[in-house]
């Protein structure tokens, strides 16, 4: 399923809404999650899962081609942990 298919499903269920409003609704949800993580916040959606930010420490990496050591700066990466309800549903429980 891709974004446009998700929008279509919501639009089909809500015939009283304009398609462009459904698009704005769906886009707002994903935008809000990304914005939260960009601020370092967590987004916890019970039953579905939680989005959080993990810190990766600075390290000395290596250029795999030349073997040369390179300093890699500390950075923050997005992380998702599946919620219990969804994890159980995936396994037919």
């Amino acid at each position: 399923m891709i974004r446009s298919e998700l929008i279509q499903k919501i639009a089909d269920e809500n015939p009283h809404l304009y398609q462009r409003d459904v698009e704005r609704i769906v886009n707002t949800i994903f935008e809000e999650i990304t914005n939260a993580m960009a601020r370092g916040d967590r987004v916890e959606l019970r039953g579905f899962g939680a989005f959080s930010v993990k810190k990766r420490d600075a390290r000395t990496g290596r250029n795999p081609r030349t073997g040369e050591a390179v300093e890699v700066e500390e950075k923050h990466v997005p992380f998702f942990k599946t919620g219990k309800l969804l994890r159980d549903r995936l396994n037919g429980k």
Partner: peptide
């Protein structure tokens, strides 16, 4: 970093 936790309520507030 503000270290807040958002929930469904914050997402629906944004949609609202």
């Amino acid at each position: 970093m503000s270290d807040k936790t958002l929930t469904r309520m914050d997402l629906s507030e944004a949609v609202f």
